[in-house]
Amino acid sequence: MENKIDARGLSCPQPVILVQKALKDGALSLEIIVDNDVSKENVIRFAEGKYSMKTSVAQDGNDILLKITK
C-alpha cells in the first residue's frame, strides 16, 4: 500500500500526527513532503524511533521528500 502525504506549510506536530495516522492505518511504506528541517527531524525521529522504519531524505528546492519504509 503506497501512501503520499503533503505536509508542506504545516507546523509541528501536524506532520508527525499525519504519519502516525497513516502507520496506524496499516501503511507499510509512505512518502511525505515537508518544507522545514524541524518537521524533517521530527518525522525521522518518530518513524525510526517508534516504528523502527527506515527513512531516506531527498531535497528538491525548498521541499524535503521523506521516504519511509519497513
Binding site: 509541528c12 506536530p13 508527525v16 500526527i17 502516525q20 524541524v38 527531524e41 525521529r45 518518530f46 524511533g49 517508534k50
Partner: peptide
C-alpha cells in the same frame, strides 16, 4: 535544538516521545 516546553509535554501525549 528546537527546545520547547510545550513540545516536551505535547510529544509525550501525542507520540510517547521524551526527546
Amino acid at each position: 535544538s528546537r527546545f520547547c516546553t510545550i513540545g516536551s509535554f505535547r510529544d509525550i501525549f501525542v507520540i510517547r516521545d521524551f526527546h
